[in-house]
Design a protein around this nucleic acid. Structure first.
Lengths: 207, 207
DNA sequence: TAGATATTGACAGTGACTATCACTTAAGAG
DNA sequence: CTCTTAAGTGATAGTCACTGTCAATATCTA
């Protein structure tokens, strides 16, 4: 879901009664992400080195890479795919997929989005402006695509590895991603929910 | 079109009556690509450094980067987007887009593909196996997407920047790309034309 | 508290990519 | 044909993302 607009500063299931170790890890993770967003907002993406991020987050560069496999991932990583999946599964099984997506997306935007609109805007702006970030976002597409494959396969009683299921899923994910880019390219002026609705209608009915 | 299967060892409009300079450039370009494919086939993608490529192609590393912006581009770059565009435009304007795509793709596969099946297989295999290559391929999607936007906009008499046009185009390109991946993942055993036909049917009619 | 284990930082790489500059070589004018 | 101009090249020296290793430290468990 990185390619959509859901934000993710605080993880879905924040610090519960975890051990000290886990709590520290979470704190470090958040520290790195916050430092990254701050520095990038100040200096831009390319001008911000991992070393600077490490220093700002008060960890070593090694640690940064232990938490995030690549620099782009610091910006992009979120944990909303599982949420999306369970939300989709909670919709009636005979509802058309497009309808389900409309509901789920609208809900997701209402909830997760207002919560931290600033970061979502920065993130989507980077997706438009920084090739490396866009590229990584597109890779994340295939993960969400696989998720969709599973759900779709279940609903239509097919194999998730079927060509048809995979094609339909990736086409859909591609459509959603393009919508987010469109939104960001136009300065986040439109209402994203409206755009998504238009997208899903186009997807269902053709041009 | 990098994400599709069209190959491109010899450029479409090979060495005509170009000046000596142009001919040399073309030779260098081909030398770099051939060296790259050979080394990668022998040692794998990651184990092959740009330095090795430069040495094998008998140029300096600087020159390699003058010809190709990134290492992935050496593998991926092709020049078939313009061909695709003109072929698409040569179809009757009132033909459904999906039909046009079927014709154009089938034709492209028949022509450009048998010519150098070996390289096409290596290329698509790398798209599956090497994340960096897949990632770059996905970036090239958006270029082909824009191409499709132009053609579609013209046919349907809309603005190529319309959300609907963009969404439809990217969805279609995503579908085609997924098909190529599917083909490569299954060891290139299916007939790619058949797969593409199934894909376009799914795209037109839904799941 | 003692010992197993997880997490970290320091260090030393590798390799893709960039910028600069002098040098060679092809292209065009007279 | 030759001189000028500009294109193309190679060498060099960098930057920075990212990897691997190892010793030190912090947490957990018994």
């Amino acid at each position: 879901m990185t390619h959509m607009a859901a934000s993710a500063r605080s993880t879905p299931s924040d610090h519960a009664g975890l051990g000290l170790r886990e709590r520290k890890k979470l704190k470090t993770r958040v520290a790195i992400r916050d430092a990254t967003y701050r520095l990038i907002a100040e200096q831009g993406y390319d001008a911000t080195t991992v070393e600077q991020i490490a220093e700002a987050a008060e960890v070593s560069p090694s640690t940064v890479f232990r938490y995030f496999p690549t620099k782009e991932d610091i910006v992009l990583t979120d944990e909303y795919d599982p949420v999306l999946e369970s939300e989709l599964r909670s919709r009636p099984a005979d509802e058309p997929i497009i309808e389900s997506m409309k509901h789920v997306i609208t809900k997701a935007l209402k909830l997760g989005f207002d919560e931290d609109a600033e970061m979502t805007r920065l993130r989507t702006r980077l997706q438009v402006e920084v090739p490396a970030v866009r590229s990584r976002m597109m890779e994340s597409m295939s993960v969400t695509g696989q998720l969709l494959c599973r759900v779709l396969a279940e609903r239509t009683d097919r194999d998730p590895a079927d060509l048809e299921v995979r094609v339909y899923s990736m086409a859909l994910v591609g459509a959603l991603m393009e919508t987010t880019l469109y939104w960001a390219e136009h300065g986040h002026q439109d209402d994203l929910s409206d755009l998504m609705t238009r997208t899903l209608d186009t997807f269902a009915n053709g041009l």
